[in-house]
Nucleic acid binder design. Structure first.
Lengths: 198, 198
DNA sequence: GTCTATATTAGGATAGAC
DNA sequence: GTCTATCCTAATATAGAC
């Protein structure tokens, strides 16, 4: 039973697991407000009243910490195969959209690092390319399933629609992050209703 | 005749203007590949075989240089009032989209800094909030104009459509930056055709 | 306008004690 | 696992000569 990627190769003690979770949470906050390059390990340690050394003990390098943060972020996301099986993808997407309002820091972090990582030499480039491919693939699959059940116009190209949903999601989210006082849910709902019409 | 914002209060010599243009260009490249925080003034100076001191002579602080870069970037963009007056906004938008393929570094820079600047305490926060408000406003206006000429369904909400176009544009551009081998123009064209149908 | 040299601060990372 | 102390590098910025 290997846990991979996590920097602890052997047994996990309760305290360690909790500390790592705390560190990931604090790192998310710091990276989200200043970006990956702009956020420092010292800031993260200070947020926890922890020494820098102790932090580094858990995550030996900064990039390892970032990867842990990103993976944790995606472990909470749920656009997985089977997404929206019950009430259709449209309802499931809107529900997921609304749940995202609870974690603005996380959204900001993903937006910043995704843009940073679009440069081919960024340490997280491959991770984000794969992440988007996976998201588009999962969405296409769900759209096809809804089409086979007559919920969506069969003439709609699933892959293209999946790209557009992902894109519009990202773009509206950016606008919302810039100005949270404007609720863009109805815009997104109208967009989905038009794109995924029967 | 005051030139505002530009750090030279008095007369502009040809050499100075050219140097500043060169610096802005190099800064665009560097910020685009490593972000605002991640890109250093040293990198920018090195790119021009210029000393750090000379660079700072032209732009005394890093943030002033960023603002100059952003303003230069937007001086090239053209979603201004009157945009697409002749052949309608849909054609003009697609044309602008295609022209953007020529400046991937600029697009990456804007994507990174826009996300970074979504945090309220970022030095460029206000600038980006205003930039998006302006873009949405200009787009709404153009949509209304096209509606009055019967080119777009009058039931379409101009402001909502403007937000969606901006959002989808940003999102598709991010996907393209991550993986430039996939051409997303047809996706964008289909989206526009559906949203701005008569 | 450009340079060399330097001040100052902050970054990631390590050594070694407890 | 956590700490203090430290190393080394690189960051922005300034001083002063040419």
């Amino acid at each position: 039973m290997s846990t991979s990627t996590v920097p602890r190769p052997r047994r996990q003690y309760a305290k360690t697991a909790q500390r790592q979770a705390e560190i990931i949470e604090a790192a998310t906050t710091v990276f989200a407000s200043r970006g990956y390059h702009g956020g420092s390990l010292r800031d993260i340690a200070r947020e926890l009243d922890l020494s820098l050394t102790s932090l580094v003990h858990h995550f030996p390098t900064k990039i390892e910490l970032l990867v842990a943060v990103l993976q944790h972020a995606d472990s909470q996301a749920t656009w997985l195969p089977g997404f929206g099986d019950e009430h259709g993808i449209q309802a499931a997407t809107l529900k997921l959209w609304e749940s995202n309002y609870e974690h603005p820091e996380l959204l900001r972090l993903l937006a910043i690092v995704a843009a940073e990582a679009s440069a081919p030499d960024h340490p997280a480039h491959a991770w984000f390319v794969h992440r988007y491919e996976q998201a588009v693939e999962a969405y296409s699959e769900s759209i096809r399933r809804d089409q086979s059940r007559g919920r969506i116009n069969p003439a709609t190209d699933p892959t293209s629609a999946a790209r557009l949903i992902t894109a519009t999601w990202d773009g509206l989210q950016l606008q919302w992050l810039l100005n949270p006082s404007k609720d863009l849910t109805s815009d997104f709902r109208n967009f989905l209703g038009q794109l995924l019409a029967p």
